[in-house]
Design a protein around this nucleic acid. Structure first.
Lengths: 207, 207
DNA sequence: TAGATTGTTAATCGATTAACAATC
DNA sequence: TAGATTGTTAATCGATTAACAATC
C-alpha cells in the first residue's frame, strides 16, 4: 500500500473503476464488492483488490466498499477532485463533438478554448457556444492561461506540428485523435485514440 | 512463427505497426527496420521482431523490412485486405464525425448505414450524405445486410440496449463510444473509447 | 568481405491469480 | 456467532528484453 511506483497498467484501470462506481451510485447503490465490480467489468476480483491496494485500504472485510467513499478516493488519486481546463485544437466534426460533449463536466474536465486554422471557422461559435480562435494565437494563449492538457483533433498532417506548439507552450498531457504516432518528449504524456486502430484490432478476430 | 494463440496484447499492436508503415510509404520510403519502427513508436526493436515472429518471417537479415510487403502482410493478418461494412448507431455530433471520417476508407472500413431514435433526425442526411434511419428498424436491417461490426455512438443510457439489439441481430464486434462498460457475450469482441477515461489516465501524472 | 539486421532463444522482469488469515 | 469479503502473500503465468547465431 502506498507504493511510490504504481504500474501504468494499473493506473489505466482506475478510471474504469471510477466510472463503474459512478454508475452504481446513479443507481442508488451504496455498497459494492470487488466481486461485483469485477463481474461488471470483466476483471477478476483479485485484480481489483490488488490494484486498489497500491493506494491504501478502502474496504471493510465482510462488507465490501462504500461506493461514495471509494469513488471520492479514486477521484483524488486521479486528480479529478478538481476541474481541469483543456485546450482543444481542431474544430471539424470531431472537434464539434468534443466541444459539446456533456460527459466531460462530471468527470473533471472543461474545454476552455478551441482553435482552428480555417479562416471560415475562426470567429464563429462551436456547438456549445465556444468561440473558435485562430491557431496562430495558440501558443500565446496556452502560455498565458497555463493550460496543461491538450486535445488534438486536427488532420494527421497537422497533428505533429500542433503537438509541438502545445508542448512548447507548456502542455504536458496530450489526447491525440489524429491517426499518427505523435513524437513528444518523455516528460509529456500522450494518449492516442484512433478508431481505425480499434476496429482493426477487432477484425483480427473476424473470419 | 505461426503460433495458433497469439496474445491479444500483440494483436493490439499490429494496427499501430500497420499505420506506421502506411505513413512511411506515403513518405516514399521502401525499406525500414525494427529499430526505426521502434524509435517512431516508442517500442523496443526486439518487441517488434518478436511480435511479427508470431505470424511469419517478413524481413531480410542485414536489410530490414520491405515496407509494402510487410504492410500487405499485416493487412491480411488483420483481415483488412478487404472492406468491412460498419453499422453506426447514433447521429449526434460524434456520429456525424464518424460518418464523415475520411480515415476509414483507406483502412478497411465503410460506414454502411446510420441509425438514430430522434424523429427530427430520421430521414435526414448526415454530413457525408448517409441517410439517418429509424433505430426501430435496426435489428431487421442488420440481419438482412449481415453486418458484423457495429459502432455505438449513443448516450450512455441507451448504449446497452443498442448493444443487445446489435448482438441479437448478428453483430460480433463492437466499438463503443458510450461511457459505460458494455456487457456482451464472450463471443462478441468489444473495444471501448471513452475520452474522459483517457484524460483521467493522464491527470494521474499531473500534479 | 564487412556491416547490418533479422528471427529466435533463454533470461529477466512484471503482472495476474489463487489462497487464506484477518476481521467486519 | 456464522458468513462474507477484504488486503496481502506466494505461486503462477505471461510478456519483455538482451544477446547472438544466421545470413543477407
Amino acid at each position: 500500500m502506498g507504493d511510490r511506483q504504481v504500474p501504468d497498467i494499473v493506473v489505466g484501470r482506475l478510471p474504469i473503476y471510477l466510472r463503474a462506481l459512478t454508475f452504481l451510485k446513479a443507481d442508488n447503490r451504496e455498497i459494492t464488492s470487488s466481486q461485483e465490480l469485477g463481474d461488471r467489468l470483466g476483471i477478476s476480483s483479485a485484480q481489483i483488490r490488488k490494484d486498489l491496494s497500491h493506494f491504501g485500504e478502502f474496504g471493510k472485510q465482510g462488507t465490501g466498499y462504500e461506493i461514495r467513499y471509494l469513488e471520492n478516493n479514486l477521484k483524488e488519486i486521479l486528480h479529478v477532485d478538481r476541474m481541469w481546463d483543456v485546450v482543444l485544437v481542431g474544430a471539424g466534426d470531431l472537434g464539434n463533438a468534443l466541444a459539446s460533449y456533456k460527459g466531460f463536466a462530471g468527470r473533471g474536465f472543461h474545454v476552455a478554448a478551441a482553435f482552428d486554422a480555417d479562416p471560415d471557422k475562426i470567429g464563429h461559435e462551436m456547438p456549445g457556444g465556444l468561440l473558435i480562435e485562430d491557431v496562430a494565437n495558440l501558443e500565446a494563449r496556452v502560455q498565458a492561461a497555463g493550460w496543461k492538457i491538450g486535445i488534438i483533433a486536427v488532420p494527421a498532417d497537422a497533428a505533429q506540428s500542433v503537438a509541438n506548439t502545445l508542448v512548447g507552450a507548456g502542455v504536458i498531457a496530450l489526447l491525440n485523435y489524429a491517426p499518427i504516432s505523435l513524437i513528444a518528449p518523455s516528460s509529456v504524456r500522450v494518449e492516442q485514440i484512433d478508431p481505425a486502430v480499434h476496429l482493426q484490432h477487432l477484425t483480427y478476430y473476424l473470419g
